[in-house]
């Protein structure tokens, strides 16, 4: 597989009022061709900064970036035609109609006029294309933004929170659209806070926290690597649950008793449990590893799970150590 997007050791410090703010600190990211890649991170972790830097809107302090093998930002002009992007609900000139907005962009990018209608159709705005953007609802503006990104029929589609403001139907349409586009060979990078959505449509993810990568890889692998080895155990006769619990505790397992099942943690060989219980005539009816969902992995990795009675500030999240291979190569 070839990497469509590569980022190594990316650093960016904003000079802002109240001192410099380090938004990216040795960040890295790889996206392979044809994948739908989720880009996750708490608020202010640097997602938008990363995407803006890729698009040449922000100058990084250091780091290497490549899109489709072209070095950025130097060769951006030669690949920009193959990169469609929306960055954090882009604003359009409010007094132009949707069609004018897109056709001006199509002109600027030397694209054929028919693309405009094609893109409007795709996001369901064709009927309202003659109305001024000012009169659009949030979701309609978002759809227009997606249309503008699709206009180029890009090889790499970068969407920063595209679902922002979409209705449930719109979110599902977006999901289907991304599946279709990726089946057609397009690579999609998708930043979102709707983790259920990401889990449904993404092949792989990168999780960022305070400007550094905390996890990356295929969704299943990330989930597996960070599942805590929990196993759910149910018995044929629920009355025997407490007996079983004693047996397992005696064998050194950590467990939690529930009404109709036991939850064990730190299990590496689930088969051992069945054998231990069978030796005491306790028969297991269900023995399944509990896989964590993306949300809990995300909260654990970024350290942003809410703690009752505490208020978390936006910048309170995990800053991982830079591992030797994770690009301190400045």
């Amino acid at each position: 597989m070839t990497a469509v997007l590569e980022i190594q050791g990316l650093r960016k410090t904003y000079r802002a009022r109240g001192g410099p703010r380090r938004a990216l600190d040795g960040f890295e990211m790889y996206v392979e061709a044809g994948q739908v890649h989720g880009f996750l991170g708490p608020n202010g972790s640097g997602k938008t900064t990363t995407l803006r830097t890729l698009l040449g809107l922000i100058k990084p302090d250091s780091g290497e970036m490549r899109i489709l093998g072209h070095e950025l930002p130097r060769h951006l002009p030669s690949v920009v035609g193959q990169v469609g992007a929306i960055v954090e609900s882009p604003q359009f000139f409010a007094h132009f109609t949707a069609r004018d907005t897109l056709s001006l962009l199509a002109d600027a990018g030397s694209l054929p006029k028919e693309r405009v209608d094609w893109a409007l159709e795709l996001v369901g705005l064709r009927e309202r294309a003659k109305e001024r953007v000012k009169t659009y609802s949030l979701g309609m503006k978002q759809r227009l933004a997606v249309a503008s990104a699709l206009l180029k029929q890009p090889k790499l589609l970068i969407l920063d929170e595209p679902a922002n403001g979409l209705d449930p139907g719109g979110i599902r349409e977006m999901r289907d659209m991304m599946a279709t586009l990726s089946a057609g060979g397009m690579t999609v990078v998708l930043s979102s806070h709707i983790l259920g959505e990401i889990q449904l449509i993404c092949d792989s993810v990168t999780i960022i926290s305070l400007g550094r990568r905390v996890a990356a890889g295929p969704v299943a692998e990330v989930l597996q690597a960070h599942s805590s080895g929990q196993v759910k155990v149910a018995l044929e006769t629920p009355a025997d649950l407490s007996a079983a619990a004693q047996v397992l505790i005696a064998a050194g397992f950590q467990l939690q008793a529930n009404a109709d099942h036991l939850t064990l943690s730190g299990v590496d060989k689930p088969a051992l449990i069945a054998r231990l219980l069978a030796e005491r005539q306790l028969y297991v009816s269900e023995l399944t590893p509990v896989t964590a969902d993306l949300e809990s992995v995300f909260l654990e990795l970024t350290g942003t799970a809410p703690v009752p009675g505490q208020v978390r500030s936006v910048d309170q999240s995990v800053r991982p150590e830079l591992t030797p291979q994770s690009g301190v190569n400045s």
Binding site: A85, A94, S148
Partner: peptide
């Protein structure tokens, strides 16, 4: 001015980065 203020300029630059 209106281009800058509305964000349309940023949008345009993702089409024409020069």
């Amino acid at each position: 001015g209106a281009e800058w203020a509305s964000g349309a300029m940023m949008n345009l630059l993702t089409w024409q980065p020069k």
